[in-house]
C-alpha cells in the first residue's frame, strides 16, 4: 500500500464521513466542484465579492478556494455568531426585561447592587426588592465546565477546597506550583475563565471563585479484581468533571456592603444578661 492509498483508506467504512457534512455548512468553501474550473462560480455578484474582501480572490478576480480560511469566511462567521447567540446561556433569556433594566440602573448608580433601592424608570418610581437567588443570578458570572478528567472526586475535592473562594489570579498562582494532577486541570480551567471574563468585559483582576465543585462524569469502566480463596472485587476507573462559577468584584462589594449593613443593624452586645426573668420570682425554694 503506497502513501496516498494509506491516507485515502477510510477508517470506518460503512458510516458516512461526518466532516464533509460539517464542511458543507459553509457555502463559500465548496469542497468539491463537479465541473472544477470549467464553470464559473455561482456568486459572481460584484458587490457581494467586494464585501467578502479581495484577499480570497485570485489574479483573474474569481474566488480562490485555497485562499478562504476560517478568519476571512464571512458566511461561516455569520453562522457561528448565530449559533453562539442561540446556544449561549445568559440571564436575560429567563428574566423579564423590566427587572433587568431596574437591576442595571441600581448597579449603575451604586457600582453594585443594593437591595431595597428606589429607582426611577419610564416616568415611574419602583422600589426594587429581589430575592437572594435572583440577585445571585443577575450579577455577572462565568460558568466553567471542564472536560472529562481521569481522576476521582476525593482527589479533586482536596484541590478544590484549597482554592475555593480565592481570587482567580491568586488561585492560578497557587495551583501552578502545586504538583497534583488536579491542580493542573483546575489551573487550565481557571485560565479559560479569565479569557471568558475578558470577553464579557469584566475585570479579570477582580474575579474570584464563587463556587467550585466536582462530580462523577459517569460511565466509569470497571474490571474484575481477582483475589484469593474464590473471592473477587471490582476495580473502578473513575472519571470526574470540574464545575466552577466565577463572580466579579461587583459581588464582592455587595457582600461587603451587606455585611456592613448587618453589623449596623445589629443590637449592641450586652455582656450581662439583660433579659427579664422568665419565671415567677418568689423568696423561697420550691423543693
Amino acid at each position: 500500500m503506497n502513501r496516498l492509498a494509506f491516507y485515502i483508506r477510510p477508517l470506518v467504512r460503512p458510516q458516512p464521513v461526518a466532516w464533509t457534512a460539517a464542511r458543507s455548512l459553509s457555502q463559500t468553501t465548496p469542497l468539491f466542484s463537479l465541473f472544477g474550473n470549467v464553470t464559473s462560480p455561482k456568486t459572481t455578484d460584484k458587490a457581494e465579492q467586494e464585501q467578502k474582501g479581495q484577499e480570497i480572490l485570485n489574479s483573474e478576480g474569481e474566488i480562490d478556494i485555497d485562499k478562504i480560511t476560517v478568519e476571512n469566511d464571512t458566511d461561516l462567521q455569520k453562522f457561528h455568531a448565530e449559533r453562539n447567540k442561540k446556544d449561549r446561556i445568559s440571564i436575560d433569556k429567563y428574566i423579564t426585561p423590566l427587572k433587568l433594566e431596574l437591576f442595571n440602573k441600581v448597579v449603575e448608580e451604586h457600582g453594585f447592587y443594593k437591595n431595597g433601592q428606589v429607582v426611577q424608570h419610564d416616568g415611574k418610581t419602583f422600589k426594587l426588592n429581589l430575592t437572594p437567588k435572583e440577585i445571585e443570578l443577575l450579577e455577572p458570572s462565568v460558568y466553567l465546565e471542564s472536560t472529562r478528567i481521569k481522576s476521582s472526586m476525593k482527589k479533586a475535592t482536596q484541590v478544590n477546597r484549597f482554592v475555593r473562594g480565592l481570587d482567580v489570579k491568586t488561585a492560578i498562582n497557587q495551583l501552578h506550583f502545586n504538583p497534583k494532577k488536579m491542580s493542573t486541570e483546575l489551573e487550565k480551567l481557571l485560565k479559560e475563565g479569565l479569557e471568558q471574563s475578558t470577553k464579557l468585559g469584566l475585570n479579570p483582576d477582580g474575579m474570584y471563585i464563587h463556587s467550585l465543585w466536582t462530580g462523577s462524569d459517569g460511565q466509569w469502566p470497571w474490571r474484575m479484581d481477582f483475589k484469593g480463596r474464590g473471592r473477587g472485587g471490582i476495580i473502578l476507573h473513575r472519571y470526574v468533571h470540574l464545575k466552577c462559577i466565577l463572580k466579579s468584584e461587583q459581588t464582592k462589594k455587595r457582600l461587603a456592603w451587606e455585611k456592613q449593613q448587618k453589623q449596623l443593624a445589629s443590637k449592641p452586645k450586652m455582656f450581662l444578661v439583660n433579659e427579664p426573668l422568665n419565671f415567677s420570682v418568689r423568696p423561697w425554694y420550691k423543693w
Binding site: 461561516l76 460558568y143 465546565e145 472529562r148
Partner: peptide
C-alpha cells in the same frame, strides 16, 4: 463520553468551534 460530549472539536483552525461566548450560571 460524559463531559466530553459537550466539547466541540478544535479541528480545521476552529471551523467547528467558532469562538463560543461564555455562559453565565
Amino acid at each position: 463520553t460524559g463531559s466530553d460530549e459537550k466539547k466541540v472539536s478544535d479541528l480545521y483552525d476552529g471551523l467547528y468551534k467558532g469562538n463560543p461566548l461564555p455562559n453565565a450560571f
